[in-house]
Write a protein that binds this DNA or RNA. Structure first.
Lengths: 122, 122
DNA sequence: TATCTTTGCTTACCAAAAGTTAGTTAATAA
DNA sequence: TTATTAACTAACTTTTGGTAAGCAAAGATA
């Protein structure tokens, strides 16, 4: 890092860190990606039932933006009632290990972090 | 993954993915961590000047929560005007590589992602 | 024939969270 | 008298996400 990269910190538009976090810092994106990685192909309602706390609205917003970014693929069958399947794209696949490493770190450190948090307020 | 881990998706409190994203999905945390990794020790105003777009309020909120989680260390000198120094803790250090790998991925794929986004709307 | 069911959404409305801006503080040195 | 530093506060705006309702079209049910 240093030198060149530092310039980015000031500039929101071109900052690589902002680019990551603006994209994956939302409430559901990473969850959907990891779930699709785990399950392969899923329909809308399967996702909805598995991630119990997501609303229909937010699920469809999340899926749409993941599709727009080319991270997942959407396949719609011309049937009624409708059938739509979602799966990871190659690009999405390539992202998974990085998310997983972050999640692994969190799993390992969360107990200590929670302790720190608790003692901080006192 | 599979089996056991899947249960977490439904349950916000214990979901490891939510734990990560609730913590680092905010606008400034990762930026501050990477900057401190790069610079070692920084005072409040140095951070503020380097990350030009952050407001004083959000910078202090961010620093406080990073400190509460034990990811950074704060050293205050009993002077006026005040002098406060921030640096990464060991725990914070251990997180850095994971963030960097995510940022590296983003740098590599952002051009394509932006193309996808642009063509999606049409 | 009428209405209910199914799926994958969309829309309008609302509350809460996050972020912005401007103003305040306190001791000292210039 | 003014600038300095690292905050904090209040008032305000923006963003995010949730709720509840509705829709479309075909097939099943009564």
């Amino acid at each position: 890092m240093s030198e060149k990269s530092l310039n980015f910190f000031g500039d929101a538009e071109n900052c690589p860190v902002r680019n990551v976090m603006d994209r994956f810092g939302d409430k559901w994106s990473t969850l959907v990606l990891l779930l699709l990685e785990d399950q392969g192909v899923m329909r809308f309602n399967e996702l909805h039932k598995t991630i119990k706390s997501v609303s229909q609205k937010m699920l469809s917003v999340t899926l749409k933006s993941l599709e727009a970014d080319g991270l997942i693929l959407r396949k719609q069958y011309p049937e009624i009632p409708p059938r739509v399947e979602y799966r990871l794209s190659e690009r999405g696949q390539s992202l998974i290990p990085h998310i997983q490493s972050l999640v692994a770190w969190a799993n390992q450190h969360m107990p200590e972090i929670k302790k720190s948090r608790a003692s901080y307020s006192s």
